[in-house]
Design a binder for these strands. Structure first.
Length: 567
RNA sequence: GAGGGUGUAGCGAAGCUGGUUAUCGCGACGGCCUGUCACGCCGUAGAUCGCGGGUUCGAGUCCCGUCACUCUCGCCA
């Protein structure tokens, strides 16, 4: 029972189920007994009503309600279950704090919004299964108790009762198993796979999450990309009636970093970054020239004049704060005044090349230019953050769009300063691009991989690659990543062994289901599309996991708990 | 590991520079009401202001500490 309105002689009940709300009328015709029982009803009771569905009198039609033209004239009423006082009201969207919503998730899930999002998630997964099944993919389950392999994130470990001191790990993804399925001849595989990574949670990250895991044999990069383009075109149309582009824009990693400052650009707005280094050298602003002499880069972004937001000191400071999060030391600026001249900020260092700057940036009266000078990485990241904040604050985001793009040609390796060795930027099973294969070891940092990410509205929603299927090449990659042959053999021997037996070339991708549904639902937290999520402290407030276990369970698992130093 | 924000009744909020009995809406409880649909009207109860300490004649308000939640950096291929 959603709500009731008792007028003494007549009572209305809004009866709610998964499909919506229908009005029940309790009037004289129901009889005194039913009327009396109805008067005792409270919100969220579970009730059973029998009666006649009838059209409402003309003037009583409620046009704002799907079922507003009819009502049920009750003849019998039964209380199936009463309800304790509820901690928050159940409406379309709950206004309770997230913590409270999670503690009483069974109530929160009754809200219209949660019901819709869970349905959307179901529809999305169903459409994916249908699309891929029609294309001859097999859905194959892989184990959730696997060997712990060093792949990047921390593993969740499961102690073995039978083998003291040995552990299973929960998969960070079915990566190695799906590659082995390729060796086994299942050349088109997918799975709606749960993945586990023991790292800190975020708004768009849970420690367990769901991927569409997918792999194909005998494919090149473009085969995977075009399959995904068709898949999402089909699935978006079927689930939310949105027509995506037939093909998605492709940017190289370098292009994306240079133009948008991130490897996951939001293309619902433009606001490109421009390289200002050449012009900076013509000016006399020491911060810029110093940065360039130290091998750095100066970049500029143009903030278009806004009617609603003044480019005040306070506003610029808030942008500078955004830049500083990404290690920029500051944010330089200049404005174009009504006469079309540069003024304020650092403009005095550049007055002699005003024309060039205005031409280069296309800045018009009322616009503002914002600069960061630092190492290439810091400059890109910091100004990229400024770009995102500008788009939000100046309301430049077209929220009706779903803007997909591919990011390709990622670096294969990055250097781990703390541990002084190279490691895989993506994972160690991705294929280097052909032109680098002979000389991998000479300059790992310059090697581009056959890697691709799918980006949607500024979120990384899928990541994949063409894989290595050659034992020797795989071993070379392991060696570069500080896994000598004996260690690699111990950790990944089963994969190397499989590759000895006629492994086909293969590649795949893994779109994140939670994130995609989140974006489709217009939400900014994946908790809104997960029935039972955990909070940022990795706790489930409803069942209070994680929890302590009995000593007997620990004994069975041969575990001794070290006393916390703080305790 | 680090930074920002929040914490006042079951829920959501207000409470200005410290000053009577901590305010409002929703909800709950009791009553009235025959066409409502966020029904309406009358009434009642409900708060150690997250917790601990300090400053003060006096603390929801100021200071220190601490806990919880949340966002972000790190981390997460």
């Amino acid at each position: 029972m959603h709500r009731t309105r008792n007028h003494g002689g007549i009572q209305f009940i809004n009866l709610r189920d998964r499909y919506g709300i229908t009005q029940v009328v309790i009037s004289d015709t129901a009889g005194a007994e039913v009327q009396e029982l109805a008067a005792s009803l409270h919100n969220e009771y579970c009730i059973s009503v029998e009666g006649v569905v009838a059209g409402r009198p003309d003037e009583m039609v409620n046009s704002s309600m799907d079922t507003g033209e009819i009502e049920v004239e009750a003849s019998t009423l039964q209380i199936l279950s009463t309800c304790a006082p509820i901690p928050f009201q159940i409406d379309e969207e709950s206004d309770a704090k997230e913590d409270t919503r999670l503690k009483y998730r069974f109530l929160d899930l009754r809200s219209g919004g949660m019901q819709k999002r869970i349905k959307l998630r179901h529809d999305f997964i169903r459409a994916i299964r249908e699309f891929l099944s029609e294309r001859d993919f097999y859905e194959i389950e892989t184990p959730t108790l696997i060997k712990s392999t060093p792949e990047g994130a921390r593993d969740f470990l499961v102690p073995s009762r039978i083998y003291p001191g040995k552990f299973y790990a929960l998969p960070q993804s079915p990566q190695l198993l799906k590659q082995i399925l390729m060796v086994s001849g299942f050349d088109k595989y997918f799975q709606i796979a749960r993945c586990y990574r023991d790292e800190d949670a975020r708004g768009d990250r849970q420690l367990e999450f769901t991927q569409l895991d997918l792999e194909m044999s005998f494919v090149k990069r473009d085969d995977v990309l075009s399959l995904m383009e068709e898949l999402f075109h089909d699935v978006f149309r079927k689930t939310i009636g949105y027509e995506t582009e037939k093909t998605f824009l492709r940017l190289t990693w370098e292009e994306a970093m240079n133009t948008y400052g991130v490897d996951k650009p939001d293309l619902r707005y433009d606001l490109p970054l421009q390289d200002f280094s050449t012009l900076a050298l013509e000016g006399s602003f020491a911060t810029f020239t110093d940065a360039i002499e130290n091998g750095g880069t100066v970049k500029v972004i143009k903030a278009p004049a806004s009617e609603s937001v003044a480019f005040s000191r306070k506003f610029i400071t808030s942008l500078e704060e955004a830049a500083k999060v990404y290690k920029a030391k500051g944010l330089a600026w200049m404005k174009v005044n009504a006469e079309g001249h540069l003024e304020g900020g650092i403009s005095k260092f550049f007055s002699h090349i005003e024309e060039k700057i205005l031409g280069f940036t296309g800045a018009r009266p009322g616009d503002m230019l914002l600069f960061v000078a630092d190492s290439w990485r810091v400059t890109c990241a910091a100004l990229g953050a400024v770009r995102v904040k500008l788009a939000k604050d100046l309301s430049l985001i077209d929220t009706s769009r779903f803007a997909f793009c591919w990011i390709i040609d990622f670096p294969l390796f990055e250097y781990n300063e703390e541990e002084s060795h190279w490691e895989a930027a993506h994972h160690m099973f991705s294929m280097p691009q052909d032109q680098y294969i002979d000389t991998l070891e000479e300059d790992p940092g310059s090697v581009k991989g056959d890697l691709y990410d799918l980006v949607l509205n500024g979120n990384e929603v899928a990541s994949g690659s063409i894989r290595i299927h050659d034992v020797e090449l795989q071993k070379r990659i392991f060696r570069i990543c500080n896994f000598p042959d004996d260690v690699a053999e111990e950790r990944f021997g089963f994969l190397l062994n499989a590759f000895k037996y006629g492994a086909p070339p293969h590649g795949g991708i893994a779109p994140g289901i939670d994130r995609m549904v989140m974006i489709m639902a217009g939400e900014t937290s994946i908790k809104e599309v997960i029935a039972f999520p955990k909070n940022t402290a990795a706790v489930s407030p409803m069942d209070d996991s994680p929890s302590y276990v009995d000593q007997q369970q620990l004994d069975d698992l041969h575990l001794i708990i070290k006393k916390d130093e703080k305790a």
